[in-house]
Design a protein around this nucleic acid. Structure first.
Length: 159
RNA sequence: GCUACAAGCCUGGCUAUCGAUUCUUCGCUUCCAGGAGAAUAGGAAAGUCCGGACAGCACAGAGCAAUGCACCCUGUCAGAAGCGGGGGUUCUGAUUUUUCAGAAACAGAAAGUGCCACAGAAAAUAACUAUCUCGCCGCAAGGCGGGACAAAGGUGAAAACGUAGGGUAAGAGCCUACGGCUUUUGAUGGUAACAUCAUCGGCGGGUAAACCUUGCAUGCUGAAAUGCCACAUAAACCAUCGUUUGAGAACGGCUCGUUCGAGAUGGAGGGUAGGCAGCUCGAUAUACACCAUUGGUGUGUCAGAUAAAUGAUAGCCCACGACAGAAUCCGGCUUAUGGCUUGUAGCUUUU
RNA sequence: GGCCCCGUAGUUCAAUGGAUAGAAUAGAAGUUUCCUAAACUUUAGAUGCAGGUUCGAUUCCUGCCGGGGCUA
């Protein structure tokens, strides 16, 4: 009981202080099952990747280059890569990949809903092309923009 | 208190929310999805500089070649060349009859070959200048020819054992004494490297991280190894060689020799590129007593991913966190780097 | 993961262990020209870093740093 009381106090404390946090918490409480990022949601097949790089659509949204392809079978798969040349240390590469994945995990729901409505699937791949490491808010915003443009493209194609 | 060196230790913690991988369990006929619980990156995981474990192939033999190593004893997962301990030799610094500290790829230059710029007579066989002497010519200065070859010749990084005496026409390890270095042999001490002493002979520079010689060691390839399952095709086409007159393979770089015996090599092209095992319990850590050199027993620990998990956000705590991310495993080395403790040395302040 | 190769002026390449590291281009200054180009003259520029062997290292050896290749 005592622990619950403490956590409840902290929650109030946080929500008063931070606004971004508040929104995140609201989503979390309302839809707790939607923020998964499992093995089946990752783009792993080498064959699919080669096909995506050769014949998929692409555009650039700093600091990423976006490759995507719309499939008729349902399911959304996602992948990230960071160049070995730009970042020589494995620690930096891992950090970027983790931050991008986190930003995608928290924002992918809208795209998923649109795909479910249209009964289509998508392969999505991001390549980090900037030379230096950005902070988490930058990743959050740019991933948001990418998802919005993707949804726009989907709706135009459908109509 | 600061700085330097050496040794050892640690590599943030807690709370909340949302996640990831593996395992167990609930539920379900099974899988998937879902709930609960546990575990989840380092001292260097790095560089790949070494050595192994392990796996596949090979395991009649001989010779040559190639590669690596080089004072001795000993320990350890180890034949340790590299790690730990102890010792020897040489060099350097301090100290001064001895001791301390540091360094050393520390076998051989007296088996042979090569090289040693510039300078210098000469860079190793010797020659040249100068010296001494004899003969001839010349008034003389000197010149020419023969003999002595060994000291001097200021250069250079390096110069033909050093000093004293004898000896001689002049000289020279030519001889003697003392000293230094060194080869052979022997004695003593030491497990050995080696040290001391004696003896015979010698003293002819350096370079082996130049070729090389001697001694020792080394089968090759590395988890993208390797084994299995699934899927897919082209057992097709062209060129060369070949089937007992033997292509090719074992055999690893070559030769001899032995064995096997029908395909081999290259070109152009086609297909697949999914999964499982290897994969983490070990050459493990610690404690214990027994037994006597090596094992046994008990307890604890132990990431296992595969486009690749171990994270994100917010707050608090003394420093608001350095270097940095496993990819079969282990031991060593090197490099990067934050903090703490102990010891030694130096400097400053106070007493 | 494993196995190899290479680092020389701004760039492309030379240099038996030997003197002040050479050449072509690019740069700068000058001559020429009304101005530019071309030509000519002059000039500044480098052995990846740290140790060792040697009388003396671009070269030989060791360790770091950087770049590249092969291998399914």
């Amino acid at each position: 009981m005592s622990i619950r009381c403490k956590t409840g106090q902290q929650l109030n404390f946080l929500s008063l202080r931070r606004v971004v946090c508040e929104t995140e918490f609201f989503i979390c409480i309302s839809l707790p099952k939607q923020f998964t990022f499992r093995k089946s949601e990752r783009l792993k097949s080498r064959k699919a990747l080669d096909a995506l790089f050769q014949s998929g659509r692409r555009f650039t949204q700093q600091p990423f280059r976006v490759f995507y392809a719309i499939k008729n079978t349902p399911g959304l798969q996602f992948g990230v890569s960071v160049s070995n040349k730009n970042f020589k240390k494995a620690v930096d590469r891992n950090k970027i990949k983790r931050l991008v994945r986190e930003a995608y995990r928290l924002q992918k729901n809208e795209l998923q809903e649109v795909l479910e409505q249209q009964k289509k699937g998508m392969h999505l791949f991001l390549v980090y092309i900037q030379q230096d490491i950005a902070d988490y808010p930058v990743f959050y915003k740019s991933v948001k923009k990418i998802l919005i443009t993707l949804i726009k493209n989907l709706r135009e194609d459908h109509s």
